[in-house]
Design a protein around this nucleic acid. Structure first.
Lengths: 206, 206, 206, 206
DNA sequence: GATGAATGAGGATTCATTCAT
DNA sequence: GATGAATGAATCCTCATTCAT
């Protein structure tokens, strides 16, 4: 389930956290690897012991984010039955949760793919496609069974994901809105977007 | 309508275009001001004659983008009547059009605000708030008159804008999808998101 | 008496004043010709209309200082008779006065000769030698007539000049010490340095 | 005795020497840090490894000069007894020696303080005040015990120091005058300036 | 007579990275 | 395994100066 990711020693974690902050604040190109090492309270040479280059550090960061997102998503799906609406809600919950967490609150994934090597880029695109595929599949299911009436499932999917991603732009953990609220509101929003119409007789259990 | 923006000599335009490309490709921090000058076929010192710093160049870029977006939006609104649905469609059309154009195809606005000075940041935030306000107002109108049934107008607005913004991430001008198609699809999507229910008797003119 | 110096239009004077301040504050190498023009409220191109280069501006500055110093010195000498003590006092008065004035309060002459071209350097060295020669001559007179007992007239001369020059390092025009006081104290000091012993019988007129 | 100054590795010393020469020749503002590195046969990045900035290099230079001067002065004083005349001679000897040495032959201290940060400026001013204070104290002693008759001890002190400092302007190590000669002549000069009158009966030992 | 635009060279500094220890 | 020292290349930017207008 998790990829063959870099080891997870404390040193690794401290560096990833520091890098995430620096990259988020200054962008990949604007971040200094010296500052990252300093923020992680690690010597510069030690950083290079863990990660061979700035690029590799970025890759590890994005890859680890994917690990976490995958894990959350699969856990959420695991708690549901077969109902596409229920499953879509689970996926939205996972994405909202991710975007409210430390790894999703930056939007590195949306812009800093360009800074990866072609191989790294391809690897993450693949993982991203898997994640997108989970939405695609669920929506296709709903459309197939007639409970999602949207005429443009691709647009619907992209809109749902974009809306959830955008949470990181405006939501703040110290504000009055709880992640729990967001999950409910964005689940509803997602069902609206796919134009969910529950079957008349067989009531859907909440 | 347009702000008191920097002058628009050919030199300015060439530099803004070059900077947009470089910033989009490498990010603000990763872009080299030398490369920008070279790409614009302008001497490095000439660049500094036009723009006092890299930061100022970024600001001019974002500010000019705002000019264009404002202009498109107001033109679109000018062609409509009072109906909130019609006006929302106009705003979506403007945003989609902007995102399909050269100035909106990068997503500098979403990430590189961090690279501005506090003053520049504030100035653009204000302009952005105006643009957002146009959506907010139209949606509030629709909700007030009962034709937009969404219980969460703020989420609806953010979702519509995020969905349109995301177009720049996947849509390519040389693909098979025309902007015209996108405008229609995203107008529908927006009306879906605000849960538009036209009045029964008074038919809305298209 | 005055050299074939650059013309003295208001523009010239404003530029010289601005340059003197900038050079004094930042040194020749550290001063920006742009800042000088700005401080003088003159366009950059106008500056180049008056002075062909930064170096020429420095030269004009030092040369004009020499003009002023020569003038003060000769005026002071003109008010004296033949007595070497009296004449030395006049030269000290002139130098103190110069060092308390705007042109002498910086110490450009002591360090920025290095920034001149060889020709400029030589020209000013010559003028400086003339000024030094006035001291030398007076002291030689006093030694020759037995009223200056110093065994080292060269050291005495250098010490007197160095002491007067140093005034610019610590004296401030807005302090409590008046130039008049300095003149008296440094005249006495100079006579002490040359070991002045007035003749017993023929009283020296003040 | 020496301050907690920067380390004294060969690299440091080579850089300080190179910087001293460059600063002396071109002034702080006119000196190029590239040229300094080159003159010291050190890579530019290595220079920055040793000294964080051009300014810091200047500070280290001036500070180290102070170290040396303090050391010479205290050694010279250590060889004397209590007699103010003897002690003044020791201080003059130290200053002359310093001004004839490599660290005193430039006059950076007199002009390039302006190029320091306020903090650096203050630190060196303090050290300079200590050095000046040694003269002040000795002269005050002599005045107090009646063997220095000068009515203006402050002017006398400044004149002595200025005269010694000026040595660096005209004396050349390859000329015919030996430092030994200068020390004797300037000691005499200093005693002349303070108007030294030895006590009649108790002869002062040389 | 005066200027705004333009420039090539060079400014100080920081970069990601390597390597001997 | 871990690090301080060292580096070449590149960074953004400013310099004194010129020239067409």
């Amino acid at each position: 389930m998790t990829s063959t990711a870099p080891l997870r020693t404390p040193g690794h974690q401290a560096l990833l956290a520091a890098a995430r902050e620096e990259f988020a604040e200054r962008g990949y190109g604007g971040a200094s690897i010296r500052d990252i090492a300093q923020r992680a309270a690690v010597s510069l040479a030690a950083l290079y012991h863990y990660y061979g280059s700035k690029q590799e550090l970025l890759y590890a960061l994005l890859d680890e984010g994917m690990d976490v997102y995958d894990q959350i998503s699969l856990q959420a799906l695991g708690r549901t039955g077969d109902d596409p609406a229920e499953r879509l809600e689970a996926l939205v919950e996972a994405l909202v949760r991710f975007r409210c967490g430390p790894r999703g609150s930056s939007q590195l994934e949306l812009t800093e793919f360009r800074s990866l090597s072609p191989e790294q880029h391809a690897a993450l695109r693949t993982r991203q496609a898997v994640a997108t595929g989970r939405f695609r599949e669920v929506i296709a299911d709903g459309v197939g069974s007639g409970i999602f009436r949207t005429p443009e499932p691709d647009d619907a999917r992209r809109a749902i994901i974009a809306a959830c991603n955008a949470i990181a732009q405006w939501w703040r953990p110290d504000g009055s809105i709880q992640p729990h609220d967001l999950i409910e509101r964005y689940s509803d929003l997602a069902l609206t977007i796919v134009e969910y119409r529950p079957r008349a007789l067989r009531r859907r259990a909440r």
